[in-house]
Design a protein around this nucleic acid. Structure first.
Lengths: 207, 207
DNA sequence: ACTTTAAGTTAGGAGCTCTCACTTTGACAA
DNA sequence: TTGTCAAAGTGAGAGCTCCTAACTTAAAGT
């Protein structure tokens, strides 16, 4: 029983009348479609087709389209944070290497999941207002602030730490947008991202 | 005759059966609505209501919704470029002040017209593909590259100039996104944008 | 086994994009 | 000045979307 349920849960499409875990199935369908067609271009109808249910089914699990997108975006934020945390593994605390690792992972996420990244940060009105999403973003930024503080030899997040962290975030954030778009990234010519990030960390943490 | 026509041209709404300059009227309506409701949330139907014409009228002037948005975005790119160029007025060539002026103006545009800014750079699939829009973006970036070259004492756009210019662009671009969003900007704490930009120019143009 | 209820369904309203066939009217030539 | 034509409007409607309402299925607990 429990086993059969688990197998069902992981499936995108349903088998019988009931899906097993339609909520998760729709979130996964949403993720796939947002990557495929972009944050605009996504439709609930498409997600229903992909999950193999009728177009009315989602409304048993989500209030509306926006809530469905927010649920997917939230999982994206968590992946984003977890990957950033994982990238710190084995790098000495207080060294610039930790800053560049975070930046690198931030940008890698934007490159690997451009649809989700743009959805989360590109200014889609619906998602901007969700408090859980905002809180998740703040949590991730807090990680950055902690690392900046350590690099600057501060034990607390001072105003200067916050200022530097915000500048670093802005930089990496902007690079993510530029690099996730082929029409923009080629304007940068031939460059090595790791080199740029190292250069950045040196310049921004100096003094 | 010519005068009456000009008066009509500047009007958003039509007076008689014919509008006078519906194309321009729709572009202006589109701009207003994109600011009001965000790039998503915009509908051709709304623009028609605002311009006072039937919902079939736009298709005499634009192939589809996308082309209408692109036309509006194009004017936004031109405003963006013109304002950046104007901001250089009276600042000595080859000084970092010209870089900070460009950056400041870039961000100001994002703050003054967040809807248009996000539409142009937030990764809306339809617009990304338009070659005229891409070319306009490249033209604006070329201005930045020229200033960076002058600051670094180069007479040409070398690979290093391009790299630094791209980094500066990335930074200002990211800050624009963060500052245009109240939920992000407050994470930066209390800070003075001019001070940050000066700091940035010093750090990024050093060496 | 029976009941309850969560989770599906079909049907349909309202709004959107866009097309088609039609109407209006300004511009230009005779 | 008048007649014609083409540009620029119109209403009607097809096909899509999101979402609701009322109905049906079947899973879970007593």
């Amino acid at each position: 029983m429990k086993n059969a349920e688990k197998i069902k849960s992981s499936a995108l499409r349903k088998s019988g009348y009931h899906h097993g875990d339609l909520r998760a199935g729709l979130i996964e369908a949403t993720r796939q479609l947002v990557e495929e067609k972009g944050p605009d271009g996504f439709s609930v109808t498409d997600a229903c087709r992909l999950a193999g249910v009728s177009t009315a089914a989602p409304y048993k699990h989500f209030k509306d389209k926006s809530e469905m997108i927010v649920a997917m975006a939230m999982q994206g934020m968590e992946r984003h944070r977890d990957m950033m945390l994982a990238s710190l593994e084995g790098i000495a605390v207080g060294t610039p290497g930790r800053i560049t690792a975070l930046g690198r992972q931030y940008i890698d996420f934007a490159l690997n999941e451009p649809g989700v990244f743009r959805l989360n940060f590109g200014g889609f009105t619906d998602c901007l207002d969700d408090p859980a999403l905002v809180a998740a973003g703040e949590g991730t930024f807090a990680i950055v602030l902690g690392e900046v503080a350590a690099c600057l030899g501060e034990s607390q997040v001072t105003e200067e730490v916050r200022r530097r962290g915000f500048m670093l975030w802005g930089f990496v954030h902007g690079l993510s947008f530029l690099m996730a778009d082929p029409k923009h990234v080629r304007l940068g010519g031939e460059f090595d991202l790791d080199h740029i990030l190292d250069d950045l960390a040196v310049r921004m943490l100096a003094n």
